[in-house]
């Protein structure tokens, strides 16, 4: 626990003239949950894609401590090594479950596929693991042979989470995991995520524009505006005593119900 899991140094991503994100540095430690907040277009998804090696930054480095304890530069790895990392050590939960699931294969196969990718071959064992995970994310196990096209949005999202967590990743990236869901479904999903993060001790980087999600799930928080990280710190410190004008605006814009 004495070394960070991921260290990003001055990540900049330019789309031609336009700035995706600029000079963002952060570190993430094992078991820690970091929320990246900001409004649409603030660069949070661009940053998440750079951190998760889905997008190569224009400049800056991302180092990740692989299971052998060596901190390695993501973009100096081979494509095969990065893919291996994504399949084993990482999860990525998309806002739209259809992007993270295979919509035409069964729920059980969606979960089992990640296990097969890391070399598990015993069919009974894989099916058992898939059943356990469906239970854990509250998808009825009688739906194991149905494909996710027949699932509601909330169920699809929970299935996507099961698919990502079945391999016991050390780091999960989440892009607006509760976006586009009804509030009651959101609450259930948040509660589920909270429990899973605490029980599994995994680290997570959660991009969200919803400060309530950040408050419930994260230890630390980073606020982005116009591609730059403008404020960071303990989640409750940033939310209860915001320093920057823009953070004060964000916090004061929350509807109280």
């Amino acid at each position: 626990m004495s070394e960070p899991l991921l260290v990003a140094d001055k990540i900049t991503k330019l789309y031609g003239e336009r700035v995706g994100c600029r000079d963002v540095s952060l570190d993430l430690w094992p078991g820690e949950v970091l929320a990246v907040v900001g409004e649409s277009g603030s660069g949070k998804t661009t940053l998440l894609n750079c951190l998760s090696a889905r997008l190569e930054p224009t400049s800056g480095t991302v180092r990740y401590a692989t299971r052998d304890g060596v901190a390695r530069d993501l973009f100096a790895m081979s494509e095969a090594e990065r893919r291996f990392l994504m399949r084993t050590d990482w999860g990525f939960v998309h806002q739209n479950p259809a992007e993270g699931l295979r919509m035409t294969v069964s729920a059980g196969a969606n979960v089992g596929e990640r296990l097969m990718a890391i070399g598990r071959r015993h069919y009974g064992g894989i099916r058992q693991a898939a059943t356990n995970w469906l239970e854990r994310v509250e998808v009825g196990t009688d739906r194991i042979d149905d494909d996710p096209r027949s699932f509601s949005g909330g169920m699809r999202q929970r299935l996507q989470i099961a698919r990502n967590l079945v391999t016991g990743p050390r780091l999960v990236f989440m892009d607006e995991p509760t976006g586009g869901l009804d509030v009651s479904v959101q609450a259930r999903l948040l509660d589920l995520l909270r429990g899973l993060v605490a029980d599994l001790g995994m680290a997570a980087i959660i991009v969200t524009h919803d400060l309530a999600v950040a408050r419930l799930l994260s230890d630390r928080m980073m606020v982005m505006k116009d591609g730059a990280a403008i404020e960071g710190g303990l989640t409750d410190r940033v939310l209860d005593d915001p320093r920057e004008p823009y953070t004060q605006l964000l916090v004061s814009s929350i509807l109280q119900v």
Partner: peptide, 9 residues
């Protein structure tokens, strides 16, 4: 109290 808890800067 909030300063001691680290909740206020």
């Amino acid at each position: 109290l909030k300063m001691v808890y680290g909740n206020y800067a």
